[in-house]
Design a binder for these strands. Structure first.
Length: 560
DNA sequence: GTAAAGACTTGGAAGAATGTTC
DNA sequence: GAACATTCTTCCAAGTCTTTAC
């Protein structure tokens, strides 16, 4: 993992790839699939029909009932219509997409019902595509590309209350594409009859392909897979920065506690914000352009309306009640007792302000990060999230792992430690649709197992009694085998119960993000080595590939 | 110094693949 | 071997932070 280091800013010397795979062209609907306007059949032009199919495919989704979605969609759809279509189709409510929708459902069904051979053929075609376009050569390594397929056109689905939901994501053409590769590489050829927007040779960046997306006007990239050298090294670096923070975090904490008393308002706000970022693992909270995205906030962009101050609540003093929408419009709700000084400062920050005013009006992420940079090289707000997540995992693993436990119980402990981090970082998920049912299934399995255990115990008891009377080898053997059976069933029962606990506790918690992005994998690798847990129980294949550097590096005594 | 553009990480959901059960 | 449940993979949106432009 420690190969030659490049000079500042240089990411590679040689980069060769085959360019992106474009979305398949639009296939018009068969003649018998009809679209109705105002109850009458209407044949749409190809362009208008394509956009209509995007809507039809989403018809069962809640999105299509939302006013903003419908409004945005209709506006963009009309832009694709011929002038006749435009003059006829004036009201979305009069459009009937149900026949189209049924057709697509039938198609999905047919795909499921395909024969083994047909499915195999599709699989092989995908593999061929992956083999040809899914890899690149960066310096001396053949590397997997993360997303070599260009995003197909469709309707934009923002998250939360997004003002642009329903807008048309246009089809990306070769003429939109910037290719990045090295001068001495074989430059990918554009599809016949087309050319690239640009071919450049910039080795100060890691991307292979980029284009500008039409909804937000932002740039999208094709980059390498997490298993690649370039991503792995960066990941490793990230955790090393977090470990450097570990060494100076006490000093930083003392510093911001001092700053709560500062004469300067800006310094006080900075210090309180940093306290939240450290204690609650809040995100930095960059400013966002109003009206362009859903209204979500992070620490620096908190508004007065997002917190409530309780001098006393449920027997605790100085409680701050947070209630706001964070990244991806996930709600953050928390009641936290804070130090008196913080509380008094918050009261001060809120004085004479309206609910929609910024809580930290003298602060933004760039001021905060500049300050952090002065405290430690490479320190930014998000390092606190990484640091606190990883240190929590390490400490929870120490606390929760019981040396006498068997492997499933130890894994439950691991999951619980992981869960503590996910809760800290507020990683939530919608409870799975089948949650209640699957819980019930598991419970009935447990009940059945319990009965089985009772039976086995009864049998053991009578075998013992029998052996006492008979006193022969055969009955002794029977006792032994019955004992073993009881033990085996006990173990199975325990495994099921552990599984049930784990699942119940995990109902609304998403473990994936913290596992993949916040927890120094060396902590997990060391823990596995220490307790003889196979690494496969903790990381699946993809995860093991991503964390190959850590699996290689960490020994059982690794300390974050 | 500030705003916009650019580059890269982080995020949950949906879809695909695989495993389990009857 | 079909139907259902679970796990893995893909998708692409939405953040953070850096760099560039003015």
């Amino acid at each position: 993992w420690e190969e030659e280091r490049y000079p500042e800013g240089i990411k590679w010397k040689f980069l060769e790839h085959k360019g992106p795979v474009f979305a398949p062209p639009y296939e018009p609907l068969p003649e018998n699939v009809k679209f109705y306007y105002d109850g009458k059949v209407m044949k749409l032009s190809t362009k208008a029909e394509e956009v209509a199919t995007f809507f039809a495919k989403m018809l069962d989704h809640e999105y299509t009932t939302k006013e903003i979605f419908r409004k945005n969609f209709f506006k963009d759809w009309r832009k694709e219509m011929t002038s006749e279509e435009k003059s006829t189709i004036t009201n979305l409510s009069k459009c009937d997409f149900t026949h189209m929708s049924q057709y697509f459902k039938a198609q999905t069904e047919a795909r499921k019902q395909m024969s083994k051979e047909e499915k195999q053929k599709i699989k092989e075609e995908n593999e061929r595509l992956l083999k040809e376009y899914g890899y690149c050569v960066m310096d001396n390594h053949k590397e997997r590309i993360a997303n070599f397929k260009i995003e197909p056109p469709g309707l934009f689905r923002g998250r939360g209350n997004h003002p642009k939901m329903g807008m048309l994501k246009r089809r990306i053409m070769p003429e939109d594409i910037i290719i990045n590769c090295s001068k001495d590489s074989k430059i990918p050829a554009p599809p016949p009859g087309h050319k690239w927007k640009e071919v450049r040779h910039d080795n100060k960046v890691t991307w292979l392909v980029s284009w500008t997306e039409n909804i937000q006007g932002s740039i999208k990239y094709i980059m390498l897979n997490p298993s690649s050298r370039i991503k792995g090294e960066k990941d490793w670096q990230k955790y090393e920065t977090a470990r450097r923070l570990k060494k100076c975090v006490d000093k930083i904490r003392n510093q911001y506690r001092e700053d709560w008393k500062s004469k300067e308002m800006k310094v006080r706000q900075r210090a309180v914000a940093l306290y939240f970022i450290d204690k609650l693992a809040l995100r930095a909270g960059n400013e966002k352009e109003e009206g362009e995205t859903a209204d979500t906030v992070g620490c620096c962009s908190l508004r007065v309306e997002h917190i409530k101050l309780h001098p006393e609540l449920d027997g605790q003093e100085y409680v701050v009640e947070f209630d706001f929408l964070g990244k991806d419009s996930i709600r953050y709700y928390n009641k936290v007792p804070v130090e008196k000084r913080v509380f008094k400062n918050l009261q001060l920050f809120m004085e004479n302000k309206q609910p929609e005013d910024d809580l930290f009006d003298r602060l933004n992420t760039s001021i905060l990060n500049k300050h952090l940079q002065d405290l430690m090289e490479g320190l930014t707000a998000k390092v606190f999230r990484t640091y606190n997540a990883s240190i929590t995992l390490q400490q929870q693993l120490k606390e929760l792992t019981n040396p006498d436990d068997n492997i499933p119980a130890k894994i439950l402990s691991y999951n619980r430690a992981n869960r503590a981090v996910a809760i800290l970082c507020n990683h939530q998920r919608a409870p799975p649709k089948t949650f209640e049912k699957s819980m019930m299934n598991l419970q009935s399995k447990i009940d059945a197992k319990k009965e089985q255990l009772a039976d086995a115990r009864r049998e053991l008891k009578s075998a013992k009694a029998d052996a006492k009377v008979r006193r022969d080898e055969k009955s002794k053997k029977t006792v032994e085998s019955k004992k073993k059976a009881v033990q085996r069933i006990e173990e199975q029962l325990m495994k099921l119960e552990v599984q049930a606990t784990d699942r119940e506790e995990n109902k609304q918690i998403a473990l994936g993000t913290s596992k993949l992005n916040y927890l120094d994998p060396r902590i997990s690798v060391a823990w596995c080595k220490k307790w003889g847990i196979p690494i496969e129980k903790i990381y699946n294949k993809t995860q093991r590939e991503k964390f190959a550097w850590a699996i290689d590096m960490a020994e059982e005594d690794y300390e974050f």
